[in-house]
Design a binder for these strands. Structure first.
Length: 263
DNA sequence: ATAAATGTTAAGAA
DNA sequence: GTTCTTAACATTTA
């Protein structure tokens, strides 16, 4: 479910709890999301401690506590962050709940493909420090992208889904980018012309900005001239040429594209 | 009943 | 070393 902008949307939902001391903690007894050891560390270090800030990078989030504690969150396919009242009762798919005086901060994940990581140090954990440059930073330049993808023969869609190259891009965003650039998702990356590569880089950044504005802010529905609104509908049509969209499997993922527009 | 779902990773093969 | 394919993970929804 969550890609760059959805992650940002969920991250902000826990803002309600910032600077409110944790009074009580619930953890699911056997959870693949929150491992045994992380559960212990969190249980013994979160009470009377407060989240003071959070950040997102690609599909990862990091919550910083006042006293030497960090919580990393990856939402997997069906993870959600929720803020509710202190009276909230744990449900079947809740893996972690932090209770403050006025709120409950919930990590809910039915398929449990997400991951919660805990680190007890004063500096940000090492897995946060060695990250690929975020798409909207100045480090993600065309020159950088060129240098990282030089001679890559994989399919464009496959590379777009590679988090070490395009952090935050997921299935719908990868399709949206290919469609906007009129690039067939199975095109080999090293077959892209200079113009195509430049276009792909620009559209990638543009889509990230737009998605953060539209979905990241309040999860509103994107405009109808995005592929987004048409890609999941059976019989969906291409907003550019009004012909039926095509589907196939690329890189093990359902891929939606227009075989008239995308060459 | 069967398939597919906005993600990641591991294993084995080419 | 790179890339591809497949499977696995667990649950809900169409």
């Amino acid at each position: 479910m969550p890609e760059l902008a959805e992650v940002e949307f969920y991250r902000k939902r826990w803002n309600t709890g910032i600077k409110h001391p944790i009074q009580k903690i619930y953890t699911k007894s056997t959870s693949r999301v929150l491992a045994q050891e992380a559960t212990q560390t969190l249980r013994s270090n979160s009470i009377n401690n407060s989240i003071i800030e959070s950040s997102a990078s690609g599909k990862q989030m990091l919550f910083r506590f006042e006293k030497s504690l960090w919580l990393g969150v990856h939402l997997g396919m069906t993870g959600k962050l929720i803020s509710d009242t202190p009276a909230y009762q744990p449900g079947k798919h809740d893996h972690l709940i932090l209770f403050t005086e006025n709120h409950s901060l919930i990590y809910q994940d039915p398929r449990a493909f997400g991951k919660l990581k805990v680190d007890k140090s004063s500096n940000p954990p090492h897995w946060w420090q060695n990250r690929a440059p975020d798409i909207l930073t100045s480090d993600f330049s065309l020159a950088y992208l060129k240098s990282k993808t030089n001679n890559r023969t994989g399919k464009v869609k496959a590379l777009l889904l590679d988090q070490s190259l395009f952090p935050g891009i997921g299935n719908w965003m990868a399709d949206e980018i290919c469609w906007r650039c009129d690039i067939h998702p199975e095109t080999r990356f090293n077959q892209l012309s200079n113009d195509q590569l430049h276009g792909l880089w620009k559209e990638t950044r543009q889509l990230c900005r737009q998605a953060l504005r539209v979905i990241g802010r309040n999860w509103s529905t994107p405009p109808n001239d995005w592929l987004f609104n048409h890609r999941w509908k059976p019989g969906g049509i291409c907003p550019k040429c009004n012909k039926p969209l095509d589907r196939s499997t690329v890189n093990g993922r359902t891929t939606c594209f227009c075989n008239l527009c995308q060459k």
